[in-house]
Nucleic acid binder design. Structure first.
Lengths: 259, 259
DNA sequence: TAGTGGTCTAGACCACTAT
DNA sequence: TAGTGGTCTAGACCACTAG
């Protein structure tokens, strides 16, 4: 890179230069960046340094790396907007199910693979997630059942979901890997309770290795987390749910004005 | 690592092994992991491979790397809960300002540095963010002013904020790097309008290089994004705001039940 | 000063995608 | 097959933190 390190590491200066080129339109949206050996030669740095720079841009969702093909400038994010009615209290509105059909997906899609699919019913152990669920439901982990699922749409996994209920055992057919449709109503039926919102929270977290695998994204990808407790009409906590959604593909919207 | 690659790369298998040890309590929360040379020797792999594994765990918020000190298992996330009243329509509720005083920060804190600080008023160009703001406000970029700020608390930057208003120029003192307190009311006063929510959305994104710098986190860190439009009582869009908050430090909560 | 993580290089080989 | 990105090694030097 010619100049001396002004304390900023080489790979970051390289990333900034590439970012500048993209912002300036030298590499427009959809365009392929020069290959790693080409960048390596142009800037006079090792290929690994190039990779480190490009990896940062990928994590910032600036470029998309396609193995065996090249690295491409991402077009402006097109994200599914999932409506959350701030006033509605019943049922699990704002769910990914409700929103996905309206998705303005660029790629065609059209598979028989859409829907929610159980991926397993892991035992509730003392893991951090399980402990949190127990705390939220005011139970011990021994009283809880857990179901994990994936919601697929347009041929891609879009959301990873985990549900905890203070009820066990769950019916075998509900828990068998397959596609029982929307899990929240199914769980409500199975446990014999009516569900309404208690609270929901939005957070962000880097994908851990398991979620990365489930969602088909690199570990560390920014995920939007929507978690919360639903309860029976008398206020008894009856469901803790935690959904992880690829942040570059979806967002939740609250509208405050009529019309 | 002894065995042959079962198609899963070495560094990921290493990451999984470390994750297992952490889950099993071999490295409890707060404990220091073996140093990179130690892990390198123990598993018989190159130090760079170790680093790649540990870097994944860091991005998944499993460990925290402290330069010159070591790598430590992160304790269960303690995140600020920022309340969003789903029914309230006036003012900028759910703001970071309102929530920060209640923060259950483990570290002491107690600095005179808390508050919102203007970091600049960059010209509104054709950047992707500026274009989005113009679209949301129904204006051209030439009509907009922009202010960027950082909200600091407990000695740390907690949120990066950008505001766009269809009004220019803004008063110089509002835009001068410093600490004008809460910017939303200040902007409302400066532009002479009353603000109420139109909509707010929650998303997640990896920190780009600029936000990483502002927030003091590694690029690619999962950020919680809260964006939206506020308008005048007659429905004219008057403010587009976009806040980025370190996802491991905060979340937004909507409560649906009274009490 | 000793030990930790951070950066960078050179070179090798592999896996995937397109043609 | 040729070209792309993915993984891994060996070794060097630097920057930061603690005692």
């Amino acid at each position: 890179m010619a100049t001396n390190p002004p304390s900023t590491p080489l790979y970051r200066r390289l990333a900034l230069q590439l970012q500048e080129r993209i912002d300036a339109g030298a590499y427009p949206a959809g365009a392929r960046l020069p290959s790693e050996p080409e960048l390596s030669a142009e800037f006079g740095v090792n290929r690994l340094t190039v990779r480190q720079a490009v990896a940062e841009l990928e994590r910032a969702a600036v470029v998309e790396i396609r193995r065996g093909v090249g690295t491409f400038v991402r077009p402006p994010a097109v994200r599914i907007s999932i409506a959350v009615d701030p006033r509605s209290q019943r049922v699990d509105l704002g769910s990914v199910h409700a929103a996905l059909p309206d998705a303005a997906g660029g790629a065609s899609g059209g598979h028989g693979e859409d829907g929610e699919f159980v991926v397993g019913a892991p035992p509730v152990t003392g893991s951090a997630e399980d402990a949190e669920a127990a705390r939220q439901l005011g139970r011990t982990t021994a009283e809880l059942s857990r179901v994990d699922s994936v919601i697929r749409h347009a041929g891609r996994p879009q959301a990873a979901c985990s549900y905890w209920v203070p009820y066990r055992p769950l019916p075998a057919e509900l828990v068998r890997p397959g596609h029982p449709g929307n899990l929240v109503p199914a769980l409500a039926r199975a446990t014999g309770v009516e569900l309404e919102y208690d609270w929901r929270a939005f957070g962000a977290v880097g994908a851990d290795l398991a979620d990365a695998e489930l969602l088909g994204v690199p570990p560390g990808t920014a995920l939007l987390v929507r978690e919360g407790v639903s309860c029976t009409p008398d206020g008894t906590p009856a469901l803790y749910v935690r959904r992880r959604i690829d942040g570059s593909r979806a967002r939740f919207v609250l509208r405050f004005r009529e019309s």
